[in-house]
Amino acid sequence: MSVLLTAVVTLGVIGAGSAAILYLIGQKFKVEEDPRIQEVQDVLPAANCGGCGFPGCASFASACVKADTLEGLNCPVGGQATMDKVARILGQAAPVAVKKIAVVRCNGTCEHRPRINLYDGASNCTIAAALYGGDTGCSFGCLGLGDCEASCTFDAIHINPETMLPEVVEDKCTACGACVKACPKDIIELRKQGPKSRRIYVSCVNEEKGGVARKSCEVACIGCSKCQQACPFEAITIENNLAYINDDKCRLCRKCVPVCPTNSILELNFPPRKDKSPKEEKATVDA
């Protein structure tokens, strides 16, 4: 009996002593933290993707709490709903962020852009881009080795094995921008998702002169400026033989699409046109 008692008492004393020490140390090294940081962090998606520009959700939360206004702070993953919740916790007005989505500006599929050599190095776009212009005549276009796919934490971008081009899964893309950073060719851009996901963009980044660009890829932008003339809203600029549609100015009128001689302007998620013959490029893109 006494053995049992000794054991219980000894262990009890050791336990109580340890607890006391732990408590005292805990008190001494206690870090004072704004409790709202934790609250904000709780409403964040916890993806730690870095899409907000901060290393992770915790540091974004702390930045939100410390900032005077939420202007310029946006969680692209959680979107408006999350930012509203954050604003409520902090008692501020949430800035209105426009929903964006990743857009791949290259339509150089295997048919449009024939392969002229075989790449045989490590399967990594950055390594291939450091080596040479790529396995097609276009040294600006997609290399198809999937750095974007590897960088995506949301399973939202995949290389289509038939076209060897990445395709964005619309309802999974959070516009965190990881693929934009990962792409060594700067092909991927975050653009406004648009009403009903309707978007128009120039699906080409080739800055060569028209003839050279066209020779390497059927659907290359040749910088002819026909789209620029067709645009009623001055949304299109031509720089380095390449057209670019400013998504702030574009009103989705679709006038530029049919005038493009190389079909390099793509329209997504629009209803089929009634007046003219069906456009071919719809068939080639199915994002």
Partner: peptide, 12 residues
């Protein structure tokens, strides 16, 4: 293994 391919990238 393509050791140098990756190391070259990392070195850069």
């Amino acid at each position: 293994r393509p050791l140098l391919d990756h190391i070259r990238l990392g070195k850069g």
